[in-house]
């Protein structure tokens, strides 16, 4: 009887703890969303999304070049990272051996690398030779994206049941064909999820772009030119003394948030197909 009472009290206590934890998590999330939407929504317009910035003090102007730069660098980083990551993951999961253990270890260490280090690395290796550029920015983003996508892909490949691999091999299918057409295909949902999360992450990265892409007040006209990017613009505008720029920083933050949100919704949709 008493032990039942004690258990019931413990149950209530647990419930309260969980509720408190939930509220503690929700408060900053909700207030952040609220603030960004409240401050940013007013400025949104077609011009804001497509026009070049105007000098501080002048009315109007937009973040078109930052959106262009971000899309360009993220696309390029994805084109570099996705194939490399998938092949690395397949190598680790399908071919085993010492070298693959080392590859896995490296991917894990790299995925924990602070993003500013990716920036310095590319700055030293690339920027000092070819200058600030969209290419250098994309490479810095790739340094961050490759390990995360590799690990996500590896986890999904590992999750493909043994019985599926064996079914293919027992049909007299060569191993490389089985890996490519059965195992990779079975893991595609998980890999797709990993890719989108990787993309969402690099969209928001600022530090690695600071001394690679640098920023630009105009449109980007080539991979070897410095380029604007959303997180860079937010950083520069928010810390500027001009009211109009600060407002635009909120607007840009809202745009970035919506992009990341859409990518996360994309993940949900893919994951449901499982």
């Amino acid at each position: 009887m008493t032990s039942l009472g004690v258990r019931r009290i413990k149950g209530y206590l647990m419930l309260i703890l969980v509720a408190v934890a939930f509220i503690i998590i929700m408060i900053p999330l909700i207030s952040m969303l609220y603030m960004i939407i409240k401050e940013g929504i007013g400025i949104l317009s077609w011009e804001f999304l497509t026009a070049l910035p105007k000098p501080p003090g002048e009315a109007g102007g937009g973040i078109g070049n930052a959106i262009q730069g971000s899309l360009m660098m993220v696309a390029l980083a994805s084109m570099i990272s996705i194939p490399i990551s998938i092949f690395a993951a397949m190598y680790i999961s399908e071919y085993g051996g010492k070298l693959s253990t080392i590859t896995e270890f490296i991917a894990e260490v790299l995925s924990g690398t602070p993003s500013i280090i990716a920036g310095i690395f590319i700055y030293t290796l690339i920027v000092l030779r070819i200058g600030f550029s969209a290419l250098a920015g994309a490479l810095a983003l790739s340094v961050l994206m490759i390990p995360t996508v590799t690990i996500a892909s590896y986890e999904s490949l590992k999750a493909v049941p043994r019985s599926i691999r064996e079914a293919a091999i027992a049909l007299g299918v060569p191993k490389w064909r089985a890996s490519l057409f059965v195992i990779l295909r079975s893991a595609m949902v998980g890999i797709g999820t990993g890719v989108i999360l990787g993309v969402a992450r690099i969209f928001g990265e600022t530090a690695p772009l600071l001394f690679t892409a640098l920023g630009n007040m105009y449109w980007n006209e080539g991979l070897l030119e410095p380029t604007a990017a959303l997180p860079l613009l937010i950083y520069n505008y928010a810390t500027s003394p001009y009211k109009s720029w600060q407002t635009q920083a909120w607007g840009a933050a809202l745009v970035l948030l919506v992009i990341v949100l859409l990518l996360n919704i994309g993940v949900r949709i893919i994951a449901r197909k499982r």
Binding site: P161, S163, I164, A167, A168, A170, V182, R185, S186, M188
Partner: peptide
């Protein structure tokens, strides 16, 4: 070979 558990390719 036919396995103990049916294992058609899920994809």
């Amino acid at each position: 070979m036919v396995f103990q558990r049916p294992n058609p390719f899920p994809t």
